[in-house]
Design a protein around this nucleic acid. Structure first.
Lengths: 119, 119
DNA sequence: GAAATCATTCGATATTATTCAAATTATGGA
DNA sequence: TCCATAATTTGAATAATATCGAATGATTTC
């Protein structure tokens, strides 16, 4: 991933509403969510929601698929993985950061979801 | 880290110039860099550079310290670590992403810096 | 203290993002 | 076909960001 592309993804997530949408879709997993369900949960006007969904789609962080009258959105895990990989590769300089603490410790944490002492 | 705070950090990095500055400071390691050196490398006008350095400082991604006539900036590794931890915890949903590939594989990659097949 | 250097702040401008009501498109059912 | 529902697009107002020349503040050197 190049810097320009990474900046686009970061900017897309760098807005409270969009980050909220994205987290919701991550929570929802591969089954995704209808746009209206997102809008209701986050109390967003339809037009505003569409604007942000469009932004997230354009950069490839989510994707929507029509399903009868609804549009089903789901997070694009691969894109997010690439972004994290980019940050991990470019955020650290050998021993100056804590790669193991952050990187290899998280799988268990994630599986357990919010153990003691987190956040 | 909360969503609002994470969004702030992501937005700060979600600009090509600022991401470029940050990567440069990561490369520079804990010894950091003078503002003028950054400006020269990235071909930025002093006022523009100050604007972006101010933004990155405000959110805690970098910090500057006066050193005679110069101001020495360095990346704040801890903040970046927290951000990556936030994304890692909130970007994945159990087996749907590739935690090991991204997370535990990168330490070696990082130490080797850009082996074959990367990026 | 004056001049030189490094960096920030100010000010003005240009550009881009955000919001949302209203209109439009798409689909399913009576 | 007509109506209801889901979502997007349009359009227009507002707000936030980005850029950079010029002025200012800080510090060193002569």
């Amino acid at each position: 991933m190049e810097t320009l592309n990474a900046a686009e993804l970061l900017a897309a997530l760098g807005h409270e509403s969009r980050l909220g949408i994205f987290r919701l879709l991550i929570e929802a997993g591969p089954k995704g969510m209808h746009a209206s369900a997102i809008g209701e949960l986050l109390a967003m006007a339809p037009a505003t929601l569409s604007f942000h969904l469009g932004h997230l789609s354009r950069v490839g962080l989510i994707q929507g698929e029509r399903e009868s009258r609804f549009i089903h959105y789901k997070a694009n895990f691969a894109t997010m993985d690439e972004l994290i990989a980019f940050l991990t590769r470019n955020c650290c300089q050998r021993e100056q950061c804590l790669p193991r603490t952050v990187c290899c410790d998280t799988t268990d944490k994630r599986r357990g979801r919010a153990k003691a002492g987190e956040e």
